[in-house]
């Protein structure tokens, strides 16, 4: 009997059946979300990548490409400070008549290198301790986390000043200080990510299968923790750069006569404030840091958008 209609516009109350070819149609279950799109940089991300590559290039090859040594005087016959930009010194000279551009090129490697090494150290320590605390169980976790909380509740720059006062400033000290101070934040992040993964059923499944701790950490936890942690690296790097250059600006970072961007701002600030002298010796290094950190930030934005924006950008 055909008491139904196949007309889509069937009136209310009528029995409509969509035409079908056979009784044996396969009604496929819908696939879950398609594999996540490959990571792609946006336009601003590309701009950031170009800026950062530029500075990394300068950081590595700067000392070879710079027209002068960082402490050379480009115009040995003219000892006047703060000379305006001219041929032979495109960015002018500084308080001690040194070439600003050469000092920026020398300083690039130092600023980026110290910050990078400090961040890597912070990551190494923070991740090992953080994942360790997540795996080791409540007691270890509580003790390490409490100590970490005490350190994290100190303003970084103050802690940096106290440490540098105590042990004196040198490049290794700066790296270790930055590493230890920022380890606290990486620890917190790594622990949170580790904890989140630890309660996943697949980790429990591995445990109840009888797997050892090494397998669980390396095969179950780490592959899942790596991505969010790596995407946070850029952000941490920005904060370490700001930290190191602030210390240098306060005179507690890289020591003269070596060149460092933060230090350059400090050295030339007096003349900048009293106006009239050249602006470039202060503006150029400050701008150098700003472009570097904003460049990194542009890349970080793309990464965190890709990762779903759930990264802890606030810290």
């Amino acid at each position: 009997m055909s008491d139904f209609t196949t007309d889509k516009k069937a009136g209310h109350g009528e029995h409509y059946v969509r035409p079908f070819e056979s009784e044996e149609i396969a009604f496929e279950e819908l696939q879950d979300a398609a594999p996540s799109a490959r990571f792609k940089l946006s336009v601003s991300g590309w701009i950031g990548a170009i800026i950062v590559s530029f500075w990394v290039f300068i950081g590595v090859f700067g000392p070879f490409l710079a027209p002068y040594h960082e402490n050379d005087l480009p115009f040995p016959d003219d000892y006047s400070e703060y000379q305006a930009p001219k041929e032979g010194a495109f960015l002018g000279t500084d308080v001690e008549d040194r070439d600003v551009m050469s000092r920026i090129m020398y300083g690039a490697g130092r600023t980026i290198g110290i910050a990078f090494a400090g961040t890597v150290l912070a990551y190494f320590l923070g991740v090992v301790l953080g994942i360790g605390a997540a795996v080791a169980g409540p007691w270890v976790d509580m003790i390490v986390s409490r100590i970490n909380d005490a350190f994290i509740s100190l303003p970084t720059i103050m802690l940096g000043l106290v440490v540098v006062t105590a042990v004196g400033s040198s490049i290794p000290v700066l790296i270790v200080t930055a590493g230890l101070i920022y380890m606290t934040i990486v620890y917190r992040l790594a622990r949170a990510i580790g904890m989140e993964i630890m309660v996943m059923d697949y980790v429990e499944a591995a445990k109840v299968r009888g797997e050892g701790i090494w397998w669980i950490v390396t095969k179950e936890i780490w592959p899942n923790a790596a991505m969010p942690l790596i995407s946070d690296f850029g952000l941490r790097l920005i904060y370490v750069i700001l930290f190191i250059s602030s210390l240098s600006f306060l005179g507690m970072g890289v020591q003269p006569p070596q060149a460092d961007w933060g230090l350059m701002v400090r050295e030339n600030l007096g003349a900048f404030q009293t106006y009239g002298a050249s602006l470039l010796p202060v503006v150029a290094p400050a701008l150098a840091i700003a472009t570097l950190t904003v460049g990194i930030n542009l890349i970080v934005d793309d990464i965190s958008a890709h990762a779903g924006g759930k990264l802890t950008k606030a810290m």
Binding site: K8, A10, E14, H15, Y16, V17, R18
Partner: peptide, 12 residues
């Protein structure tokens, strides 16, 4: 996203 069949409850 398509209607396969519709009708009074009893019928369906």
């Amino acid at each position: 996203g398509e209607i396969q069949e519709k009708g009074p409850t009893d019928t369906i």
